[in-house]
Computed example of a mutant assay.
Amino acid sequence: MSNHEQLKRITDRIQSRQEPQKLSPASVWDPALSAEIESLSFTTPTAHAAVDKAMIALKAGLHLCNDSLDESHSYSQEIEDDSTGSYWHGIMHRMEGDYSNANYWFHRAGAHLSQANIQVRVSDYLRTDVDLEKLPQGAVREALQAIRDAQVWRAQVLTDAIAAQERGREQEETRTVLEMIQRIELSELLAFTVTAATK
């Protein structure tokens, strides 16, 4: 099986998840998938630093989509000067509940190229599929309104909303919405990362 076929099999498996990932995953989703991700390689004799960083970011992202937080972290730490690596790094810390560290890495990632698509999709989801006025009042609803109405994606706003949710200050009705937004964010960032690693 070629590396591209193997990558497609991995991404298809990740996309087959019926339920969105937990905001704070407690265990690896598919242990067998972790081994497949580890064996993935697009290194060629003509590979250069940008390709290597893209491949490292890809493994960080694939592991994170498999709820393998430790493995994802080990890869994102290798490319701390890379915007995509920093973005994956931030999401990893958000999932483990280290929210201030997550926001630090989102700041390091800067205006990532995936964020325009994330904002469009999330805003559309919040406008068409969610009646925000029916959600319980509180920090999460306020954050969701801010995300819906924003012109640019700010991962820090989502992080603050998730922090409020996970600290038990919000109703469970908002958890489903946050999980779907995280799913959109992960999907767009993974699509960007796959393209960067395989072009």
Rank of each mutant, 00 (worst) to 15 (best):
N3W: 09
L7M: 07
R9M: 08
I10P: 00
D12C: 12
I14P: 03
Q15Y: 15
R17I: 01
Q18K: 15
E19C: 11
S24E: 11
S27R: 15
P31V: 04
L33S: 05
L33T: 02
L40E: 02
F42C: 10
T44L: 15
T44I: 14
T44D: 13
T46I: 11
A47Q: 09
A49Q: 12
A50H: 09
V51H: 13
D52M: 10
D52V: 06
K53D: 01
A54M: 01
A54C: 02
M55I: 01
M55E: 04
A57S: 08
A57M: 04
A57C: 08
K59V: 00
K59I: 02
A60F: 04
N66G: 00
D67M: 06
L69D: 00
D70I: 09
S72H: 06
H73E: 03
Y75I: 04
Q77V: 07
Q77C: 10
E78L: 12
E78V: 10
E78P: 00
E80A: 12
E80P: 02
E80C: 07
D81F: 07
I91P: 02
I91R: 07
H93A: 11
R94W: 03
M95R: 15
E96T: 05
E96S: 05
G97A: 11
S100H: 14
N101P: 01
Y104V: 04
W105N: 07
F106A: 05
F106Q: 06
H107N: 08
R108H: 01
R108G: 00
L113M: 07
A116V: 08
N117R: 14
Q119C: 05
S123M: 09
Y125R: 15
T128W: 00
V130F: 11
K134M: 10
V140E: 06
E142C: 05
A143D: 06
A143Q: 04
A143C: 03
A146E: 14
A150F: 04
A150K: 15
Q156G: 06
Q156N: 13
L158P: 01
L158K: 11
A161H: 10
I162H: 05
A163T: 03
A163Y: 11
Q165Y: 12
R167G: 01
G168K: 12
R169T: 09
E170L: 03
E170Y: 05
E172K: 15
R175Q: 13
T176I: 09
T176L: 08
M180V: 05
I181Y: 04
R183C: 02
F192H: 10
T193Y: 06
T193S: 05
T195I: 07
T195M: 10
T195E: 12
A197R: 13
A197T: 02
